[in-house]
Simulated assay, not measured.
Amino acid sequence: MSTSPARRPSARRPVAERVPRAASDGRGIVLGAIGLLLVVVLAWIITRPTPDPVAQTAHVEGTLPQAVGEWSGRQLANAAIVMHAGRDLGLSERDVRIGVMTAMGESSLRVVDYGDEAGPDSRGLFQQRTGWGDYEVRMDAYGSAVLFYRALAKLDGREGLAPTRVAHAVQINRDPEHYARWWGDAGDVVAAIDRAGVEVVVEPRV
């Protein structure tokens, strides 16, 4: 009597791992939210107005700290405007702090209408000479800050330089270490103004 050959067990097909519907749906929601956030951020970057030092000025609304160390009043308002200009241009927080430090070292955060022996035509928060721009712009806190930050943004490799050296490369001060003494103060002022939550309003220059 013949017997049929034994059947080989058939190879089992791999079964795809099933993801529970709830987990899959949750992952989709998270990815969708992240995508929407990226679209919103990109739209804001593309559509935000470009700071114009000639056509724009700024003022502070809200209550600033009464004093931060030796800095007070109009000095803190000017610092807030300098901070806002740097952020408007999309610069780093280190760059923003360098801007405040530089204005401290150049004018004690005051918009001054005089220069010195090295630059008799220097004016404003950053003691910018005639070649920087119109007198009205150099004498405006927001306008002069935009001029400063645009020059700073062209400085490649600045993250590897000490803050005072970055300021010196932009300002061409006699002493490259001149601004170092204000680095700590600049950090204190930036932090205090951020905590105060004031608003800097940019508007057309009249």
Rank of each mutant, 00 (worst) to 15 (best):
V112F: 04
Q171R: 08
P120C: 08
L76F: 03
P9G: 14
R165Y: 11
Q127F: 04
R165C: 09
D25H: 07
A151P: 02
A43G: 13
P14L: 05
R181C: 03
T57G: 09
L161H: 02
Y149C: 06
G69A: 10
G133Y: 04
P20Q: 07
S108Q: 12
A33N: 09
D116K: 11
Y142F: 07
L161M: 15
G28Q: 08
S122A: 08
A153D: 05
S122C: 09
V39A: 13
A169I: 00
R7L: 13
V166Q: 00
I193V: 08
R174C: 10
A58M: 04
Q171C: 11
L31H: 13
K154Q: 15
Q75K: 12
P163V: 02
R150A: 00
D25M: 12
V111E: 06
W183I: 05
W71D: 01
E136L: 07
R13I: 10
R8C: 13
D134C: 10
D113F: 03
Y135Q: 15
A153K: 06
E93L: 05
G133D: 07
P65V: 02
W44M: 11
R8T: 10
G62F: 09
V96A: 01
P176K: 04
D25N: 09
L38T: 01
V54N: 14
A22V: 02
A118D: 11
Y142M: 08
P20W: 10
E199V: 06
L161K: 08
K154Y: 03
V54A: 15
R48F: 11
G115C: 07
A186V: 02
V40P: 05
I98R: 00
L89M: 12
G73R: 02
L147F: 10
I172N: 14
N78P: 03
Y179W: 13
P14R: 07
R94A: 14
V190A: 05
Y114L: 09
P65F: 02
D194V: 11
H168F: 08
D140L: 10
W182L: 08
M83C: 03
E136P: 08
R21E: 10
V15P: 12
A162W: 06
T3V: 15
R174Y: 13
E203N: 14
S24V: 07
G99K: 04
G115D: 03
A11M: 15
E177F: 14
E61V: 14
A85I: 05
P163A: 05
G131I: 09
A16N: 15
T47M: 13
V189N: 00
E159R: 07
D88R: 00
D156K: 12
P49I: 04
G26Y: 13
D194Y: 04
P120D: 08
R158G: 00
S107P: 10
V39D: 11
G73M: 02
D175P: 03
S92N: 11
S72P: 08
G86S: 06
A58C: 14
Y142L: 05
A23D: 15
V68P: 00
Y114Q: 06
I81Q: 01
G69M: 02
L64P: 02
D140N: 09
A6E: 15
G28D: 13
G32Y: 00
A169L: 06
M83S: 04
R158E: 01
H84Q: 07
G90V: 01
P163E: 04
G160L: 07
W71V: 12
L37I: 04
V198F: 12
V189Y: 01
V100W: 04
E177W: 11
